[in-house]
Amino acid sequence: MGDGHSKEDIKKHIKLYIGIFIALLIGTVLTVAAAYVDLGHKANIALALFIASVKAFLVAGFFMHLTTEKKTIYTILVCTVIFFIGLMALTIMAHYDVPGAGH
């Protein structure tokens, strides 16, 4: 396992993990706080999803080691994300593309 998992590396990692843990807690507080500030409906949704995405990146990237993962796994996940976006986007676009309706 020559990919940065030696004992010294692990010790460095642990500091990083604790930093991320704190960042995640702050993120949670921010999400809740942002929900109580009225920025307009769409902006509220966008902000909440943005914070959630940042948190998700921190968890996936560092706790799940995705920032230093192997090519095979990247390939699988990229395909998955593309198909997920396809499913979501096309379904919702189909909902809005109604003949004769002025959406």
């Binding site: 949670t28 999400t31 809740v32 929900a35 509220n44 949704i45 909440a48 999803l49 914070i51 959630a52 948190k55 998700a56 968890v59 996936a60 706790f63 799940m64």
Partner: peptide
């Protein structure tokens, strides 16, 4: 098992704002 656990956490990170706050 940790990878699985983080994924469960990750799902909740989205569930929480989407269901509770928006």
């Amino acid at each position: 098992s940790g990878l699985f656990w983080h994924f469960v956490d990750l799902v909740w990170i989205f569930l929480f704002p989407v269901l509770y706050l928006l």
